[in-house]
Write a protein that binds this DNA or RNA. Structure first.
Lengths: 228, 228
DNA sequence: GCTTATTAAAGTGTCGACAATATAGACCCC
DNA sequence: GGGGTCTATATTGTCGACACTTTAATAAGC
């Protein structure tokens, strides 16, 4: 009953999910070539199925295809991460605005409950504010926008790419407590039906997150230079 | 040398372009079912090619596919149009902000030239500020953002859907002169490198455009009611 | 007469084979 | 020895056929 659960009905669906998992979690290296014949033996399906899966990965922006040449897993780069967060800022900002307009009182209550639950976990010791909770929070607001384009773009496309950056650049669960406070304020704005503020707070929240990641990248690069 | 030109290298490319044209311009009705076998005879290609084309149309959001059932052209609705413009507002607003940051002086100069050219055409009589000019203007700013995700989402996805609404609901070239002034102000903000203002003006520009369309839809609906 | 099974038709999903294109290596020319 | 061409190989693009699912029409039961 995961909010992000998708169920595979066709063989191409399963292969798509498997491939996506392997790409996002690094089982297939970023920048690697995706050979259709090779993958069809590896996943024991026909090339047609692989092709369909690759096509879908392309529309998620996880791979890039060139005619008559083939598909490669996207290359990760600091610049790419920044561009991704710029888009997130725009889209999730709008999602927060629309959520303030369109979420039902019930949904807002449930969202508050979720935050309280997170608060208990944070207070209760080791278990810090994990990525799953963060994703869940953002996911609910995106759904709350009730805008199908927005929902589709963010949950089918951008989020997997964000996760790929997080996993592969090794930046899980940062900014624990501050992010939590920011979430509180966003929900408050939504519950006040203050569209303007909700959008602004969400945009700042994502901007802070981006800056945090950029700093982490910079220091990591510095550390690597020292070691060398 | 059209800015929007794409060249088809493979047979699936051609079929994709043909199908997209037919869908956007109404040759295939919105909501219609896309039978793979039927289309493969109509366009004289194999079903595999049709399937690939339909997959790409799905990632443009022009068709919706369900497993084991088939694909349908998206249904147009006032609500869908509003949702589309909400996304446009978010994305193009961010594009304008980034354009103010990233466009070169040359590109800004060229953009001003484009506006002057449009101004001459407007002043010069009949030829009013056409859709092509409007699209061209927005297209340059999107490109000026230098953000690949943004560029891809807007030019490959959203713009064709917007065009489909424009064509099929019969609302070409409205708001001639006012839109022109808004364009001027946006370019001014970009040339001043005022990100904040550029984004705000672009968002308003798109909001006005949406309101204008909504009113047109409402009055059209009223007229239809009178005729009945 | 209405509901529920059964079955035939049509459509999508999957497969293996062939055609067209790109890549790599050998060979030749300068 | 460097550059270019040609050939062989590997990979992608396209095709037609088969398998499975859905749908609708028909028949059976109440």
């Amino acid at each position: 009953m995961n909010l992000l659960s998708e169920q595979a009905v066709t063989s191409a669906d399963k292969t798509f999910f498997l491939l996506r998992k392997d790409i996002v979690e690094g089982g297939i290296a970023s920048g690697a070539k995706l050979s259709e014949t090779e993958l069809s033996t590896k996943y024991t399906v026909s090339r047609a199925v692989i092709r369909e899966a690759i096509n879908r990965l392309e529309s998620c922006r996880l791979v890039e295809r060139k005619a008559n040449i083939g598909a490669r897993v996207v290359a990760l780069s600091p610049q790419g991460l920044i561009e991704l967060y710029e888009v997130r800022e725009a889209l999730e900002g709008m999602a927060a605005r629309l959520a303030a307009r369109n979420m039902t009182e019930q949904e807002i209550t449930a969202l508050n409950d979720l935050l309280n639950q997170h608060f208990q976990e944070v207070k209760g010791g080791e278990s810090y504010y994990q990525e799953a909770g963060d994703v869940d929070f953002h996911y609910r607001i995106i759904q709350g926008s009730k805008n199908r384009h927005l929902i589709n773009m963010l949950t089918n496309g951008i989020y997997h790419l964000v996760r790929m950056y997080r996993v592969q650049l090794g930046m899980a669960g940062p900014r624990v407590t501050t992010a939590f406070d920011e979430h509180r304020h966003i929900v408050k704005a939504i519950s006040n039906r203050d569209e303007e503020l909700a959008e602004m707070l969400m945009r700042r929240h994502i901007t802070y997150s981006r800056i945090n990641i950029e700093q982490k990248l910079a220091t990591d690069a510095g550390n690597r230079r020292e070691q060398a």
